[in-house]
């Protein structure tokens, strides 16, 4: 299957000797939107971190293919340069480092990896301006230090701004909708929708249906105790919102 973007097979991962992911299987194709839901502590962020290459987690079993490459053998930065983006559940503040400086390095590292020339200063500024409009991020914020003193909502918008700058093949957005007010949610969600094309794919990790009103998923997965215990279409999210996870969990725990 040539439009297969991400193929996760029987993925197991541990942190500090504790097994968190216990056999994940997940196939994502270009053009698709997947939602991953599941109770707190089920391993959603862990899955995102392992895919991004966070070295805190040890993969003990399984394989991951991304764009035909063996993802697990690659460094964090090479995964990013190849086109994997992780929107952090908790974006990190980096005092004294301006967004512009940070993004210039990020964009040009990606270009270098792909054998492209670095952007000129003018091209870069144009890109910054164009992409900050996607999430209505004010130029005041893009001239500040990375996430420093940003409100919760601004941090999440900033994640999507960076996603827009880097134009990833696969974006994994970890609770990008948490902590947003109604307007910010609309802006962030519309931003993500604008960035979605038939050539890329998006995996959104979320607890709420409200995000999925904007970003309509093709597939919805439920992650529980480190496994995907159920997969359905977009109506699953609605059912979960109404009925919670109990009906699934009770079935599974039996």
């Amino acid at each position: 299957m040539e439009n297969n973007m991400l193929s996760v097979k029987n993925l197991h991962a541990t942190v500090e000797g504790k097994e968190i992911l216990r056999g994940i299987d997940l196939e994502v194709k270009a053009g698709e939107v997947h939602a991953i839901m599941g109770p707190n502590g089920s391993g959603k962020s862990t899955l995102a971190s392992v895919l991004a290459g966070n070295e805190k987690y040890t993969v003990t079993e399984g394989t991951v293919e991304f764009l035909g490459r063996d993802l697990l053998s690659m460094s964090i930065e090479d995964r990013a340069r190849l086109g994997l983006f992780l929107g952090f559940q908790y974006p990190v503040e980096i005092p004294g480092v301006t967004m512009a400086n940070f993004m210039k390095l990020a964009v040009n590292e990606q270009r270098k990896y792909r054998g492209e020339e670095p952007l000129t200063a003018a091209e870069f500024l144009r890109l910054m301006k164009e992409k900050s409009a996607v999430v209505e991020l004010s130029s005041k914020l893009t001239s500040r230090a990375v996430n420093e003193g940003f409100s919760g909502g601004e941090k999440k918008k900033n994640e999507i701004f960076q996603m827009a700058m880097l134009d990833p093949k696969l974006a994994i957005l970890d609770e990008t909708d948490s902590g947003l007010d109604i307007d910010a949610l609309r802006i962030v969600a519309t931003g993500v929708t604008k960035l979605h094309t038939p050539q890329n794919a998006t995996v959104v990790i979320t607890h709420y249906q409200r995000l999925l009103d904007y970003i309509v998923p093709d597939v919805v997965h439920v992650l529980y105790k480190g496994r995907i215990i159920y997969t359905g279409d977009k109506t699953l999210a609605l059912k979960l919102e109404k009925e919670g996870y109990d009906w699934l969990i009770n079935e599974y725990d039996k």
Partner: peptide, 13 residues
Amino acid sequence: DAILYMRQRGLSE
């Protein structure tokens, strides 16, 4: 955490 964050955006360590 900041190093990880920057590397996730494509910067080398």
